[in-house]
Amino acid sequence: MGEKKFLNNKYFILLLFLIVCFTWGTTWIGIKVSVETVNPLLAAGLRFIIAFPFLILITIIAKSPVLFPRKSLHFFVLLTLFYFTIPYYLLSFGEQFVSSGLTSLLFSTMPIFSILFSKIILKDKIFFNQLIGITVGFVCLIYILISEGFVISYTDFLGVIAILLAALMHGFLYVYSKKAGEGINVFTFNTLPIGVAGIILCLLSCCFEENNFQNISLNSWMALIYLGVFASVGGFIAYFFLLKKMSPVILSFIFIIFPVVAIFISSIYENKIISINFIICTTIMLLGFAITKLPGNFFKKNK
């Protein structure tokens, strides 16, 4: 009873929430460091290869099935390709040209894509506050990209598009999983897709990238281990534990908080001064996205 009481303690849940915000906020600098001396396909693949044995062990301990139900094989393929394989390659590719702080800001658009796909796939209603939040958020994001010069540089802009595509794919799979992933255990949901994605990415790297493991720096190896063990495994377990203990709406504010963590850490590691203009636009953008989290009848109640 003592352990159960501890796990339900509000201070423990708050601590876990802050840990997830910090872990997801530092993921972006981890990707940035990993691709300094590792090619993007290999970096994404090694991250998952490192995480896979730990997830297998956890899945066995939890007595959860490793394999997907036969009727859900199409969902397994979609999840493997469009949630893990392609998006994480795109993120590794994008961070070769975009700062880790801005990458996190771009990826924080994922819940917005979820709202749009919810309308298309689940026929959910889009509320007035969501339209306001989406409009404000994306206008600020476009202004940030223009002011930071990412629309002028072709390679930098290519990195931005890659990151936004990764966010779009995640947004789609978050919504589609509500429809196709019902009843699938959370450990089953992640374990085998991560393992298969890791193998696919490493095989593609062997075919299309020139790799020299002797040139991989210690910093890149440490970043890959951090991404594999702490971000992919630890962050995943903590997030899904919180999903059972907290409101999904409150939990979704992680996507508003982690960019702040990432931008702060990015400015320190990459020795980049954050302008007042960038801070103001980022704040307005994240507030815009936060508005989309308000209840649909919020404005009606406050008339």
Rank of each mutant, 00 (worst) to 15 (best):
V38E: 03
I280G: 06
I142Q: 10
I49K: 02
L242T: 10
F82D: 02
I200Y: 04
L46M: 15
F150H: 02
F113C: 05
K119L: 10
A51K: 00
I237P: 05
I120M: 09
L164T: 09
K179M: 15
L90K: 04
K272N: 11
Q96H: 13
I194S: 06
F82I: 03
N185F: 03
K63V: 08
V20G: 04
E3Q: 15
L78H: 08
I250M: 14
V136S: 03
T155H: 14
L242G: 09
G288C: 01
K71S: 14
L106I: 11
F128C: 11
Y154W: 15
A223Y: 04
H170Q: 14
S147C: 07
L106K: 05
K4T: 14
E209F: 01
S232E: 00
I132H: 01
S205K: 06
P193W: 03
P53V: 07
M110Q: 05
I184Q: 05
S92W: 06
I273M: 11
G25Q: 02
L158H: 06
R70D: 15
T109K: 04
S147N: 12
T155C: 09
I144S: 03
F157H: 01
L105W: 00
T85V: 12
R47Q: 03
I184H: 07
I146C: 11
S205Y: 08
S232N: 02
Y226T: 04
L78I: 09
I274P: 05
G149V: 10
G137K: 00
S177G: 10
L192K: 03
S108H: 06
L79Y: 06
G149L: 10
F208L: 13
I163R: 05
L287Q: 07
G195F: 00
I56K: 09
T282G: 08
F253P: 01
Y83H: 12
E270V: 05
S64V: 12
M110D: 00
F54E: 09
A290W: 02
N297H: 12
V38I: 10
E36L: 15
S34F: 04
I19P: 04
K300D: 15
L251G: 07
T155G: 09
F22Y: 12
N297S: 13
L204A: 05
A180W: 05
A231T: 14
L251A: 11
S247G: 14
L57D: 11
S72I: 08
L55R: 06
F93P: 00
F48Y: 14
S147T: 11
